Computed example of a mutant assay.
Amino acid sequence: MEKYSQFRDKGTAIAPFLPVPTAPTSLLWAPIHFTLFILRAPAVLCLSIFYFGLIEYLPVGSLIKRCVLWAVLAVPGVWWVDLQVDGVKRGKLAEKKDHLPHAGTVIASSFTSPLDPLYLAGIFTPVFTRSWPEERKVEVVSLFRAITLAFSQPQLAPPKSAKLFTLKELTQRYHESIICVFPECTTTNGRGILPFSPSLLTTDPRTKIYPVNLRYTPGDITTPVPGGAPSWIWRLLSKPTHCMRVRIARHMYNNRTLDTPVAKDVLKASGVDMGFDTNIWDSPHMRNGIKHSGDSEDDGGRTEVSAEEKRVIDRVGEDLARLGRVKRVGLGVPEKIEFVKVWESRRR
């Protein structure tokens, strides 16, 4: 793969856009893979049509929707084998519910596979959004659209027809739901974290942001290259199992002052709750003329990122890299667009 060396990060030598090769299998396993595919394909197709064509539009409870989505994951043998949450010991998760995303919060998720939104929908039923590298506002997308984005060409800017919102507006509109953001704006092979969109900077400074990283074993069900849906479906359905590991970091805010011990002590002393419905900035201890990135109504229209805002984005990126045990890279959407051009021309 030396011919793609220009798409390796100079600091880490990581190539986040190269597909993960499938491990070779013996001819003895070929009939088994073919049989698994034949048995699973009709079931997954029927469940998908049942959910996206009917259940998604019916006023049924979230439990029914989650059961159908988990069935879609279970049929191909996608197993959730490990969940780790920062600050929570094994077996103590029920006592630390605040460490998990909940209504009125934002998920900043890694994006490597169509299974990412499917899993997140099966667990958190969030409102999915699409981000762009030079745009602060986001577009609300359906679960099906979020899945297909994993196979789509990366874009630098939203289409003119897109209806855009700030994350602050969405948390107010969908106050009983979680908002999910894919800040890398495009998929990778899971070996690096791309530079983030500034969309996270439109989050209300009172809203909790949870970095979430998902990893798969084997890694060949990631989709760093657009297209290739048929081959991906074959890899998904023909293998016995796929293991999924989920990591959730401690929540943070779109304001570093909330994450300092001084701020937390002041809030505790003043009796101010840090929940979504509480306006902590009404506290006289927290005012003092401080300007925050989520306070301005014009914030959604700015593209430049200040030093304070960059520190917020950097922390989310560092958490995602730590959770995935990978490194942050300097390659982003513009480099992936060039990579796709080279990849497709050389394959032809």
Rank of each mutant, 00 (worst) to 15 (best):
K208H: 05
P126L: 02
C67F: 12
F124D: 06
L237K: 05
E139Q: 15
L18M: 12
V266C: 11
E318Q: 13
W343Y: 10
W79L: 10
K168P: 06
I123C: 14
A146Y: 03
V342M: 10
E139S: 12
D86W: 03
G122K: 02
S113C: 08
V340L: 06
P284M: 01
P59D: 02
D265Q: 10
S161C: 10
R247V: 02
F182C: 08
L214K: 00
T202N: 04
R247E: 10
V262K: 08
T188C: 04
L54P: 15
S152A: 14
L83C: 14
T35F: 09
L58K: 01
N254D: 05
K268G: 10
I123A: 13
T217S: 15
P154W: 05
T187F: 05
Q172A: 11
T188H: 07
K341V: 01
A103D: 07
D265A: 11
S197Y: 05
Q172W: 08
M286N: 02
V60Q: 06
Y210M: 02
E304W: 14
I147G: 14
V329T: 08
H292T: 11
L149Q: 04
R191L: 15
M252S: 11
A307F: 14
F111I: 06
P284D: 01
R130T: 10
L237W: 13
P284Q: 00
L83Y: 07
P261I: 00
I32N: 04
V333N: 04
E2S: 14
Y210F: 14
R8I: 03
V262E: 15
P16G: 13
L237N: 08
P154I: 01
S152H: 06
L164T: 14
I107T: 03
R287E: 10
S283H: 05
G330Q: 10
L73I: 07
R245K: 11
S238L: 06
T129H: 09
L115N: 02
F128S: 04
A43F: 15
Q153E: 09
